[in-house]
Amino acid sequence: MKLLDGKIAIVTGGSGDIGASIVKTFVKHGAFVIFTFLSSKEKAEKLSIELKLTTFCESYQIDLKDIDATKFFIQRTIEKYGRLDILVNNAGIIKDNFLLRMSKHNWDKVIKTNLYSIFNLTKYAIMPMIKQKKGNIINMSSIIGFTGNSGQSNYSTSKAGIIGFTKSIAKELGTKNIRCNAISPGYIYTKMNDNLPQTIKENFMRNIPLKRAGTPQDIANSSLFLASELSDYITGSVLHVNGGLF
């Protein structure tokens, strides 16, 4: 059973570990996926080659902080494919440091990448969804947006902001039959999380009731659920995928 048969989806940050798993899972379930990347061109090309065997994906290089470029990207998508059914705002970065040592540059970079990109893309993606009278938006938050974490004030602020954004958009667009939900991953084994200090990793593992780190596929499966008709009466919600950590 293909849960996304015939759907057109955008997945941002598609060349990262979680993004690539979401792209592959959506394609497996019948969606055509346009995935974005900023600088990981080699990873994007590798994923494109792998999935173009099914002719169900396209990669697109873009800086999602650029609102004009984002507007053009959405317009191009609609002109080329005729509609947009699913938007997964997955792109994000970390630039950790204690507040006393955090530079304004790294504060701004995380906030702009993690929040401005969602504003820019969602703003223009909802226009065709409103015309279609249907759409589905999934935003990637984090457990850190709920609990906070030492040395991650910029990241936790951005991820907490995504929750407020998600709930507000769900209320704004519910009457238009557009759903908006968020996923809050816990400790997921990715290359990005490899950069976390060892003490933080050990603390996570001690406190996870399921006694394992999550995988990118765990997040992809959760994204599939929220993107499909199986979650048709769910909006404004946060799906916690953390092995019981929070």
Rank of each mutant, 00 (worst) to 15 (best):
residue 1 M to N: 13
residue 1 M to P: 14
residue 5 D to K: 11
residue 6 G to S: 07
residue 6 G to V: 02
residue 8 I to T: 12
residue 8 I to S: 11
residue 8 I to N: 11
residue 9 A to V: 10
residue 10 I to Y: 05
residue 14 G to S: 01
residue 15 S to Q: 07
residue 15 S to C: 05
residue 17 D to P: 02
residue 18 I to S: 07
residue 19 G to V: 06
residue 20 A to L: 07
residue 21 S to T: 01
residue 23 V to M: 04
residue 23 V to H: 04
residue 23 V to R: 04
residue 24 K to S: 15
residue 24 K to V: 03
residue 25 T to W: 06
residue 26 F to M: 10
residue 28 K to R: 12
residue 29 H to W: 08
residue 29 H to T: 06
residue 30 G to S: 01
residue 32 F to D: 10
residue 34 I to W: 08
residue 37 F to Y: 15
residue 40 S to G: 03
residue 41 K to R: 13
residue 41 K to M: 02
residue 43 K to T: 03
residue 47 L to A: 07
residue 47 L to M: 08
residue 48 S to E: 14
residue 49 I to T: 13
residue 49 I to Q: 14
residue 52 K to T: 11
residue 53 L to R: 14
residue 53 L to D: 09
residue 56 F to R: 15
residue 56 F to K: 15
residue 56 F to T: 12
residue 60 Y to V: 00
residue 64 L to F: 07
residue 67 I to H: 13
residue 67 I to E: 15
residue 68 D to F: 07
residue 76 R to T: 14
residue 76 R to V: 06
residue 76 R to D: 15
residue 77 T to W: 02
residue 78 I to W: 06
residue 78 I to S: 04
residue 82 G to N: 10
residue 84 L to W: 09
residue 86 I to A: 08
residue 86 I to L: 12
residue 87 L to H: 03
residue 87 L to V: 13
residue 89 N to W: 01
residue 89 N to T: 00
residue 90 N to G: 07
residue 90 N to V: 07
residue 93 I to Q: 06
residue 94 I to V: 12
residue 95 K to S: 11
residue 95 K to N: 12
residue 96 D to P: 05
residue 99 L to D: 08
residue 100 L to D: 03
residue 101 R to K: 14
